[in-house]
Amino acid sequence: MNHTDKNIVQYKPLPGDFAIWVFIFAELLVFGILFISYAFTRKYNLELFNHHQQFLDRETGAINTVLLITSSYFVVRAVDAIKKNMSQQSARWLALGLLCGAAFVVFKILEFNEKFSEGITLSTNIFYMFYLCLTGFHFMHVLLGMVILAFILVKTHRRKYNADDHDGVETGASYWHMVDLVWIILFPLVYIIR
């Protein structure tokens, strides 16, 4: 009798290069610690946090959330397309994803610009210190993610990937989703809940 065979479950590997996953785990750890520090610092500076949070720009925050989610979605479609060997469609989805990322960057720069022109800096108070650090650090990740996306976009466009060989696309996609995931927590934490 051979009942072991039946019990073998076929697991998928993590999508993309394993290296990016170790990197993602490490990055999530960094953000996790930042989020937890924020939450507990707020606990001990309740009035200050609640007061200044009102002045954050929730509208751009929300628009930016939708942009990142949508961008992530486009990148999912790009991976789907390359799995079906449709590299040009895939490149188009990637381009759309990149476009959303760029829009995010523009809105974010406008938002930062407004805060800076009000004379707000890291030293203004502990709330703004966290606000600028969290959003600023995330912002740099958006930029890095976009560089990676642009890189795989070019390669996809040149038909360097196909149904059998698209590790690169999945690698970039995984990182980009991580950037999205972090924002999904950051936005309500810093802009909304009180």
Binding site: I33, L34, S37, L122, S123, I126, M129, F130, C133
Partner: peptide, 10 residues
């Protein structure tokens, strides 16, 4: 500035 206590620690 003070904020280095946070950034540096974290």
């Amino acid at each position: 500035p003070d904020y280095w206590q946070w950034l540096g620690s974290i």
